[in-house]
Design a protein around this nucleic acid. Structure first.
Lengths: 111, 111
DNA sequence: CATAGTATCTTGCATAACAAAGTACTATAT
DNA sequence: ATATAGTACTTTGTTATGCAAGATACTATG
């Protein structure tokens, strides 16, 4: 148990939310998602992202389409299903509530 | 994979942070922590909290003292160690960064 | 002395994160 | 042509941990 581990733990919970957010903007493939998450300082590696995308696909929140690339191997472009869109709306609320919960606990600490 | 599960997932990551926050205010026993987390709408059950407190104790972030109760069995009162205090400061920063990361991703979605 | 209330601990299962290695395609330099 | 580098997706094995459920144990009360 060290600080780095705890940071990993903390961002785990919101990973799914961020991925759905990114896909909600339009079709995107895994490496692009990976880059954007890293840009936003949300640490994630392939071994986490790919299985997670597969789980979301199996849960019918996502769908994908293979498309050829002019500069490398073919890519899986993901989009949200209708179910995924509804799910994401639920997570929007959850995130807001969670942020408020943390805020309320911090406020009590500082009282 | 359903909405309730995802909410649980989201809360998981910040559980450790909230627990340390609560203990940082002064000595407190597990059931009190449990109540306060539930009050703040952070769902957690005994089977999660007790092993987590034990892990934090083993990592030397927490220490505890048994105290007798006038109305039931004895209680383990937890306090932060110096290491725990430093650790919590690190998590403060992590939480702020994480909230900003999520905010930046949401902002991009709404562009 | 049985029941309820409070408090902590343990067991066993299922899920999931991730490091590491593998597969496979394209572009470019030699 | 072929070796190397870059890109993209997949799989495997280990480890951690969340949690339902049940156990243990103390006190107060009817």
């Amino acid at each position: 148990m060290n600080l780095e581990n705890a940071q990993v733990q903390m961002r785990k919970g919101i990973l799914e939310y961020c991925i759905l957010q990114i896909i909600s903007r339009g079709e995107v493939y895994a490496s692009e998602i990976l880059d954007e998450l890293l840009n936003a300082k949300i640490m994630v590696v392939e071994g986490t992202l790919y299985p997670l995308l597969t789980r979301l696909k199996n849960a019918e929140l996502l769908d994908y389409q293979w498309k050829e690339s002019t500069s490398g191997p073919p890519r899986k472009y993901y989009i949200l299903t209708e179910k995924g869109t509804n799910f994401l709306e639920g997570l929007d609320d959850t995130w807001i509530e969670l942020a408020e919960s943390v805020k309320s606990i911090i406020a009590k600490t500082q009282k």
